[in-house]
Design a protein around this nucleic acid. Sequence first.
DNA 1: AGAAGTTTAGCATTCGAATGCAACAATTGA
DNA 2: TCAATTGTTGCATTCGAATGCTAAACTTCT
Lengths: 346, 346
Amino acid sequence: MARRSTQAASEGTDKAKPVTSYDVAREAGVSQSAVSRYFTPGASVSARTRAKILKAVNKLGYQPNAIARSLITRRSSLVAVVVANLGFNPEFTSILGQSLSARGLNTLLFTLDHESDADHVIDQLWQYRVAGVVAAVTLPPRHVDMLSQREIPLVFVNRAYEEVPVNSVSCDQSEGERWLVDELCAAGHRRIAIVSGPEDSPVSRQRVSSAAERLANAGVKPVEIVVADFTYQGGREAMRKLAAGPARPDAIICANDMLAIGCMDEARHALGLRIPEDISIVGFDGSAPGQWASYDLVTIRQPTNLMVDAAIDMLMARIDDPQLITEKRVFSGELVRGASARLADT
Amino acid sequence: MARRSTQAASEGTDKAKPVTSYDVAREAGVSQSAVSRYFTPGASVSARTRAKILKAVNKLGYQPNAIARSLITRRSSLVAVVVANLGFNPEFTSILGQSLSARGLNTLLFTLDHESDADHVIDQLWQYRVAGVVAAVTLPPRHVDMLSQREIPLVFVNRAYEEVPVNSVSCDQSEGERWLVDELCAAGHRRIAIVSGPEDSPVSRQRVSSAAERLANAGVKPVEIVVADFTYQGGREAMRKLAAGPARPDAIICANDMLAIGCMDEARHALGLRIPEDISIVGFDGSAPGQWASYDLVTIRQPTNLMVDAAIDMLMARIDDPQLITEKRVFSGELVRGASARLADT
DNA sequence: AGAAGTTTAGCATTCGAATGCAACAATTGA
DNA sequence: TCAATTGTTGCATTCGAATGCTAAACTTCT
C-alpha cells in the first residue's frame, strides 16, 4: 500500500489548489470573517473591503465551500426530490429541478423502484441534512414522522395521508374522474371498463375508486376492472384481456395516460378497432405523448407548473418557519377533450 | 385552525435532536474516534467495541453526518448529472441515477435549458465538491479544463472533444447514420430529406453530417435539410415545410426519434400521407415512444444500459485514481427495423 | 514467562466557513 | 468639540467526523 501523502506532495506538477476564504483574506489583506461576511447577504461590509475582497476573489477564483458552510449553518441548499421510477411524469422532475434551481436550491434526486428502497433514501437525505424533501411517492408513516421530528420540511405531490398531517399539493383526482365518467355517460356509454394501475399505487387506487363510485352513482356497473402496471406494455395487455372477455366494453377509463396509450395501440393495431367509433378510451395526467396526434387523448391535464410552484412555495415557507401548520393545496385538473373518446357535444 | 395529530401535539416543545458521534461515544462508553472507525470500512475496531457502538447507534438512531465527513475527507458521495432539458432520453437520467445509487453515490441533478447556464452549474457542483460529473450536454472547453484542474472526474455521454482530452462514452452516430442511409438507398429511395436538430447541438450536427456524407458517397444529394428544435412540435413543423417544398421527399432522416415522431404525425394526420407507402421516416435514439405500435420507427437504438454502466465505471476508476489516462468508449447502436420506412428485404 | 509483534483505543488536530463578542472607526447630534 | 450612536472589523470558537500518532492491550512465539 502506497503512502498517499508523500506521493502527492512529491509529484506536484499541476495540483488542484483549493482556494479557501483564508487565501482570499490574505490576498485582500482582510480577515477571514470579512470574506465570509462578503458572501452573507445581510452582513455589514464596507464598500472599501468589499472592493478588495471582490478583487481577490476574482484573482484567485474563489468559490465558497458549500460543505463547510452547511456544516456550520446546519442547513444545506439541497432539496431531495423523490420520485417513482414508473408512473410519473418525467417532465415533472425536470420542471421541479429548474424551479428549485431558480431559487438557489439544488436537486438531490432519488428514483425509487420499490417502496422498500425508501429506507435507504431517508437515510441518505438525512445524512446530507437536506433543506427539504419533495416526494412524489408514498412514504411509510414512520418516515414521515421521522422527517417531521427532525424538522425537515416535506411536501408530497399527489399523495395525502389520513393518519399524519403533511403538506401536500395535488390535483383533484376525484373531480377529474367524475368529469370523465360524466362525459362518457352523457355520450351514451354503458359498457365501461376500468384499467387500474398497480394496486399499491395510491394514485391509481384513488382514481379507480373515484371513477367506480361515480359510475355507481350513474347506475352503471363497470364491466370489468383490469389491473396493470403503469406501463405502455401494461396498457396493451389490459386491452387484450378486455377484448377477450365476455362483453367487450365500449369505453375504457385508464388510470393514467400511459395505460391509455397502450390500450389505444393494442385496440387499433392488434385488434383492428376504430377509436372512438368502436371504443372510447380516456386517460389521466395530460402527459405530452397523450397529446400527440396519434392519440389525442381525452384526459385530465394536471397543472404541473402550478403544482410545482406551489410545492416549492410551501417548502420554502417551511424552511423559513418549520413550525408552520400543515397545509394541503388541491388544484383542479383540466378536461382535455381529445378525439380518443366519443363525447357528448358541448 | 387545523387539528394536529396527537403525536405531534403531545410535546409542545418537540425539538430536533441532532445525534452526533460524540453522543454515540458517550452512550457506548468509548471515544469518538472509535465511533468514526466503526463507520469506516477498513478500520480496526474490536468485536467488543463494535457491539457496544452498534447498540448505542440503534438506541440513539445515529446517522453519520455526510457534510462533516465530506469536509474532512474533501470528497463527497455526490455525482453531478448534467442533462439538457430537451433532446435527451429521460430514461437515461433514471437509469443513471439508479446505477449510481447502487454504488453508493448520490445524484445531484442539473437540468439546463441553455448552454449559458453551464457557468452556474459548474459553480454549484464545485461548491459541493462533487466526486464526479456525468455530462450529457456540451460544456465549454474552459469548464472542462477547470474540472480537470480541480481533479474532478468527468465523463461525457455522447459528446467528444477534439481540443481537450476527456473521458466519454458514446454511441457511434456515424455508423448508425450510415446504416440508415444504406437501408434507405438500398430500398430505392432517392429523394431524401434531412431534419436536423438545433444547430448548436453537437449530437445533431454529427448525425446530420454523417448522414449527408454517406448520402454523398451514394451519389445522392439531400433534397432539403430542415432545422428544427428537438421537440415533437419541431418535427411537425419540419414535415410541413418539407411537404410545402418543391419536390416532396420520399424519405426523411430525422436527427432523433422525437423529431421523427413529429414528422410521422404531421404526415399522417395533417397531410394524409401513408407511411411507409408514400414516405419513409427514420429516427435515431431508440426511445420508448418510437417503439410504440403507432410509430414503430426505423431507428438506431443506443445501448443506454451499457453506456450508463460504462460511464459509471470510468467515473469510479477516475475517482480512485484521478491520474488515469483519458479514455473514450464508443458503442455500436442497433438498427431497429420498424415499419416507418420502406426498407430492402433482408 | 518474557520478548517481539500486532491490534485497538484515545487524544488532539484538521477540514473551511459562519458568527457572538468586543474593540475599534466613522458618523451624527448637541 | 466631545459624547452618543451606528457601522465595521478581527479574534476566537463552532459545526461533526476522520485520522496521524502514541500508549495500552492483546497475541504469538520462543
